[in-house]
Amino acid sequence: MERALTAKGAATRQRIVEGAALLIREQGVPNVGLEDIRMATATSKSQLFHYFPAGKADLMLSVAAHEAELVIAEQMPHLGDLTSWRKWQAWRRRVVQIYDAQRQRCTLSALTAQLGTGDPATREIVTTLLDRWQGYLVAGVQALKDSGEADPGIDPLVAATSILTAITGGAGMLQATDRISYLDIALTDTIEGLRRPTARTRRKSA
């Protein structure tokens, strides 16, 4: 059970987590030790272990949770308002922009690779992130169906899962090849599949 922190304590802990996340983005997980984080965040050794009793493993999990929150936050407000075809396109551009800027510096991917998703705590962070992300996409697909802009036969959960898979798969290929095209093409094509058949026909003939 996590200890209750004062407002000052919570702010200090958050400062350490954010500082560690920034350092890891710049240098990579294997190159960052507790001493590096301590120096970068102007934190004493006793203070560091006060907030993260298990040391680096504890801190890395906290950084992973922080980065998972950022995955959603960086897509807002677009992800939370997928209520029209135009807004879906704006969100798609935002996602591609985010991953294009990150390239090899995706802290969450680096941390999950380092910590291993076989660890229950890491797996919970990743699963919670994907479930939240999928929930926004399901709501967005349903909104398109309700407005008549999406194929009425589409299952929102299935469509949302395909879109999320296109993103995560494309992001993995980006990490391996440094090519954003995999993500861009997969996401564009999957979203295009949401459109009503008549709309897709008009687009191709235009």
Score class of each variant (00 low, 15 high):
residue 129 L to R: 05
residue 203 R to A: 11
residue 197 P to F: 03
residue 18 E to N: 15
residue 163 I to C: 06
residue 168 T to K: 15
residue 98 I to G: 01
residue 20 A to D: 02
residue 138 V to S: 02
residue 51 Y to W: 01
residue 195 R to A: 13
residue 181 S to R: 12
residue 168 T to G: 12
residue 158 V to P: 08
residue 150 A to L: 02
residue 127 T to Y: 15
residue 65 A to S: 13
residue 127 T to V: 15
residue 16 I to E: 02
residue 153 G to A: 06
residue 101 A to H: 12
residue 117 T to C: 15
residue 206 A to N: 15
residue 142 Q to A: 10
residue 72 I to G: 00
residue 22 L to H: 12
residue 31 N to M: 10
residue 54 A to M: 08
residue 8 K to E: 10
residue 133 W to D: 00
residue 4 A to P: 13
residue 193 G to W: 04
residue 22 L to P: 02
residue 72 I to T: 09
residue 80 G to T: 08
residue 58 D to Q: 04
residue 174 L to D: 03
residue 120 P to M: 09
residue 31 N to Q: 11
residue 131 D to T: 10
residue 85 W to Q: 09
residue 125 I to A: 01
residue 119 D to N: 14
residue 161 T to M: 10
residue 196 R to E: 12
residue 148 G to N: 11
residue 87 K to Y: 00
residue 20 A to I: 06
residue 82 L to H: 01
residue 127 T to H: 11
residue 139 A to M: 05
residue 8 K to F: 09
residue 98 I to L: 07
residue 6 T to Q: 01
residue 23 L to N: 02
residue 77 P to R: 10
residue 36 D to T: 14
residue 136 Y to M: 00
residue 23 L to K: 03
residue 134 Q to P: 05
residue 82 L to I: 07
residue 96 V to A: 10
residue 24 I to V: 13
residue 72 I to H: 11
residue 38 R to D: 03
residue 161 T to A: 14
residue 120 P to C: 07
residue 112 T to M: 08
residue 158 V to K: 11
residue 64 A to D: 04
residue 68 A to Y: 04
residue 13 R to P: 04
residue 19 G to K: 03
residue 104 Q to A: 12
residue 134 Q to N: 12
residue 168 T to W: 15
residue 114 Q to S: 15
residue 7 A to I: 14
residue 18 E to K: 14
residue 157 L to K: 13
residue 124 E to M: 10
residue 191 I to G: 05
residue 182 Y to Q: 00
residue 184 D to A: 09
residue 109 S to W: 11
residue 150 A to N: 03
residue 85 W to V: 13
residue 70 L to C: 09
residue 39 M to N: 11
residue 149 E to H: 09
residue 74 E to W: 05
residue 96 V to K: 13
residue 1 M to K: 13
residue 92 R to M: 12
residue 109 S to N: 14
residue 81 D to N: 14
residue 190 T to M: 07
residue 148 G to Y: 08
residue 103 R to P: 08
residue 44 S to Y: 14
residue 52 F to S: 03
residue 108 L to V: 00
residue 122 T to M: 05
residue 72 I to P: 05
residue 142 Q to Y: 09
residue 50 H to M: 09
residue 52 F to G: 00
residue 99 Y to S: 02
residue 167 I to N: 06
residue 30 P to S: 00
residue 109 S to H: 13
residue 189 D to R: 14
residue 32 V to E: 03
residue 62 S to W: 12
residue 25 R to G: 01
residue 155 D to M: 13
residue 100 D to N: 10
residue 40 A to C: 06
residue 148 G to Q: 08
residue 114 Q to W: 15
residue 2 E to T: 09
residue 151 D to A: 02
residue 17 V to E: 03
residue 104 Q to M: 11
residue 77 P to I: 02
residue 61 L to N: 11
residue 89 Q to E: 15
residue 82 L to T: 02
residue 34 L to S: 10
residue 181 S to D: 15
residue 35 E to I: 14
residue 178 D to L: 14
residue 25 R to K: 09
residue 138 V to K: 04
residue 195 R to M: 15
residue 193 G to I: 07
residue 94 R to Y: 10
residue 66 H to E: 13
residue 35 E to W: 12
residue 27 Q to D: 14
residue 47 Q to N: 12
residue 143 A to N: 00
residue 135 G to Q: 07
residue 122 T to S: 10
residue 154 I to D: 01
residue 48 L to I: 04
residue 99 Y to G: 04
residue 97 Q to A: 08
residue 25 R to H: 03
residue 10 A to H: 01
residue 157 L to F: 13
residue 192 E to V: 07
residue 3 R to C: 01
residue 111 L to H: 06
residue 107 T to A: 04
residue 102 Q to L: 12
residue 120 P to Q: 06
residue 61 L to R: 12
residue 174 L to Q: 07
